[in-house]
Every structure is written in C-alpha cells, then in structure tokens.
Design a binder for these strands. Structure first.
Lengths: 124, 124
DNA sequence: CTTGACATACGAATTAATTAGTACTAAACA
DNA sequence: TGTTTAGTACTAATTAATTCGTATGTCAAG
C-alpha cells in the first residue's frame, strides 16, 4: 500500500497559492488565473477546489450564484507542514543538513545570508 | 497535460538513500533493508531500480549472478535538485522565505542556528 | 541429470492525482 | 416565455507512480 499524501499535491498547492493571494476566490477567479499560464478546463478547477474543501483546506459559502472559497487553516501552518514533510522525506527529519545545503550551494544570495544572521542574532 | 516529475519520487528517493548509504547495492540488499520497515515484494524493488537506471540515477554492472547498482550522479547534485524543485514549487523560486520559516518555527534547534551563523561568517 | 535457490525480463494490476465531459439548475434577459 | 449564460453535481477518462505475478534462465548441490 502506498502511503497517502498528507500534504498538498502540486496542483492543490498551485490553487491554494492563488486563494492565499486573494484572501478568497471563486472557481472562476482561480480558473482565470490558471488559464494565463496553461490550458485547463473550468470543471477541472472546480473538481480540485472541491477536493481541497473535502480535505479541509478550503471552506466555501455561497456568494450570489457561485461559491466563494476561503482558506480553512492558516497559510503558515500549511507551509510549515510541507517543510516538515520535505525534511522528513529527504533528510530523515533533521533540518540541519538542509541548512548546510542552502548555505553552501547557490540557493541563497549574500543578502539572504545577512538577513539570517541578523534574525538569528535578534532571536538570542 | 500534467508536467512530469523531474525529481525523485518518494519511493525512488527511499531506494536512492539506501544505495547512497552503501555506496553500491544489489536488488536483494535494498529489498532486505526495505523489508525491515514494510511489506514489499522483491520484484517491486527490482522494477523501481530498473526505473532508476533508465532515468539515469543508477548504473549497473553484473556481479556474479546479480546486478550491482551504483549511483550514476553525485548525491549532492540530486539533493540540490530536490531542494531547488521544492523552493520553486512552494516559494516560487526564492529561498529566503524558506529560511525565515526554518528560523522562526521549531524546525531548527539552537545549535543548528549557531552552526549556521558560524558558517555564514566563515564564508565572508 | 535433476532439483532448488535465486536471479532477471516482461507485462499487468492497482492506486492516487489530475483532467475534463455531460447533465442539470437557476438567474438574466430578449 | 423561451433561450442564453454561468454555475454546480456527478461521473468517467487519463497519466504517473507503485506494486507484484508469472515465465524463464542459470548455477550449484545432491
């Protein structure tokens, strides 16, 4: 048995990002935003948003004739969960090797590094 | 059309981690390691390792009767690619918000933070 | 030489994720 | 009032990832 994803799948995340940006969104809002990047059917977006609702990521209420969807959980919490899952999967749960990678490879700019140093120092 | 994964899938990664640990491994080696954690058929492992080979992550040569598999690319490069993909997908390509999350939430211990500060300072 | 252990090759079944078609409904309007 | 429009509900098809069964080959021990 394949263990089921308990984080957002790529397409689910794509949609959540659009909802987060907007605070709330209808299927049409999301559909039009996605269309700018790729071909997709209106009903595909609807299906995904319904899935996100049944999974507890979105909640809806009727607005005029359509549903208006809002995030059901804080964005930070979701993102944090995705980071956690990534660290578990790739680094067996320890964040430190990820940090080392980030600092050593070109994933971070000089500015980023200075910002971190400041953040760490302030949190002491 | 769904864009194809160009990083390791969860199960592929699981197997690569075992091969990385060992430097080289046969299907049996990996099979036995996986068995300690979950039920899996020998041939399933074989299929996955063949896939990893055709995707260019592993190369094989015959050792006695079985194939001995080795990484075909440096581990660092693969991991770096996975981090890149994650940052692209979750943070639209900028590493800095990931850092902020790591520093602010409990993903990092105090020791980790100090280690980073030292690393950053040394790299200046 | 035959049998058993262990390997690969190949093909297929299963599951999850994604996409989209079709039927139906209600409001808007000519 | 009938038709167009914009929405939902329901269902099905497609693709990728994962799992595994069966057929087959080879070597070594008896």
């Amino acid at each position: 048995m394949r263990p089921k994803h308990n984080t957002l799948t790529p397409q689910e995340l794509e949609i959540m990002k659009l909802v987060w940006q907007r605070g709330a969104a209808t299927v049409r809002d999301v559909y039009e935003a996605l269309l700018e990047r790729r071909k997709i059917a209106y009903t595909s977006v609807m299906t995904m948003m319904k899935i996100l609702e049944t999974k507890g990521y979105l909640k809806k209420r009727r607005q005029d004739r359509a549903f208006l969807y809002r995030p059901a959980q804080p964005q930070k919490q979701i993102i944090s969960g995705m980071i956690r899952e990534f660290i578990d999967r790739v680094f067996n749960g320890s964040a430190e090797p990820l940090l080392v990678h980030l600092v050593k490879s070109r994933h971070l700019s000089e500015k980023d590094l200075q910002k971190i140093v400041r953040m760490v120092e302030e949190s002491e």
